[in-house]
Design a protein around this nucleic acid. Sequence first.
DNA 1: TGATGGATCAACCGTTCGGTTGATTCCACG
DNA 2: CGTGGAATCAACCGAACGGTTGATCCATCA
Lengths: 226, 226
Amino acid sequence: MRDSTLSDSTLSDSTLRILLVDDHPVVRAGLRAVLESAGRLVVVDEASTAAEALAAVDRLQSTDGGPDVVVMDIELGEGPSGIEATERLGRSHQGVPVLIVSTYGAVSDVQAAVSAGALGFLLKDASAAELRDAVSQAAAGSLVLPAQLARRVLGGGAGQEPSLSPREIDILEELARGRTNQQIAAGLFISQATVKTHLNHIFGKLGVGNRTEAVTVARARHLIRG
Amino acid sequence: MRDSTLSDSTLSDSTLRILLVDDHPVVRAGLRAVLESAGRLVVVDEASTAAEALAAVDRLQSTDGGPDVVVMDIELGEGPSGIEATERLGRSHQGVPVLIVSTYGAVSDVQAAVSAGALGFLLKDASAAELRDAVSQAAAGSLVLPAQLARRVLGGGAGQEPSLSPREIDILEELARGRTNQQIAAGLFISQATVKTHLNHIFGKLGVGNRTEAVTVARARHLIRG
DNA sequence: TGATGGATCAACCGTTCGGTTGATTCCACG
DNA sequence: CGTGGAATCAACCGAACGGTTGATCCATCA
């Protein structure tokens, strides 16, 4: 499955190969420094966008057996968010453990991350040891949630996070740009009727009543960039 | 935490001593890795809050001649922001060059940083080379602003940043929550006509054509929370 | 193979929004 | 003391939105 000179099992003391995904070079350097400081973890590649991340996993899987863990920032600048990237990874490359790191610990973010298939959610103010432990746990298939987050997320114990389809995300992105239904229809080569159908589905899934609120909620849940 | 064997003058090609201020251990590690990768820069101390930063500068100045540059995150978690810390540093320890780093490049943030006395404003997605150059420039007393930010701040082409009135901000906050004009009117104890008037002013000032886009632009410019 | 869910489209209808014009009050600034 | 900006309100109208129902096509999946 991976570097055969070390081990071909998933022994807990073998080297863990990590793919870093963050749009900030500084943060990537920091994560790399922290992760590699203990010796057992090694960063085999870095990506700064969702697209790069997908490509990197592809490449790594076809040549090296793939990364053991993907450490992904929830925020990736312009393009798709870390949540979206995680969802896509889950659909195309099942079984790759993703650890989401974020600056803030909004309950909705954590829920969105877990719904998207992430095997962990860490804050950027986590200590080096916490980060390394979380990576190990994720590699072993365990879900890692710091106590303070877990309490808030599980304590609230509400409903499930409904997941939006890729097309619905497209619509949402257009919405955020202030486009009218007509403009969205033209831009996506579909009819206004279809746009309205998607919109109604989106409103239902997000629990909102209009487009403006939909954008706000989508942003808060990192479903779209921004 | 430092290295007195290198130099005690401020010659331009001597080692530059840096104080890092950021509340995220990962980001500090990243900044340190990037800054020290070239050899001429050395991080002599780190702080995670404004108070720690002030204390660190105090200590460094009384024992070693102080840091040559303070690299400060604009966001420092709970306590005072990097902007506030910069202001305080300017009042109590004149002459310490501060370089602000931020995730976003809101014009208002840049203006606030410069007003507070910062000698530079960098985005976290800056390259390693940009960061190191900016530190050198700041140490030499020059203001460093990446081209893309400078253009926006100095109004290269467009116009001034239109300022919204407090009432308009109120309206904008309600907009972001997805409220209808009727709901906004009720919530603010005014008529729908007034809401519409404010809305039209807002659209004009922000250069947008509808409420959804207005919220997006307002958020991007940090005019409202979120 | 039937079921499910995503994506597409249509027609209808009431509500809300956005644009415009014009007006009044209040306060700050010079 | 006038000027101007901010905030308030009214009335009108066309355009856009939101809700609803119902339908087709297609891929995936049990």
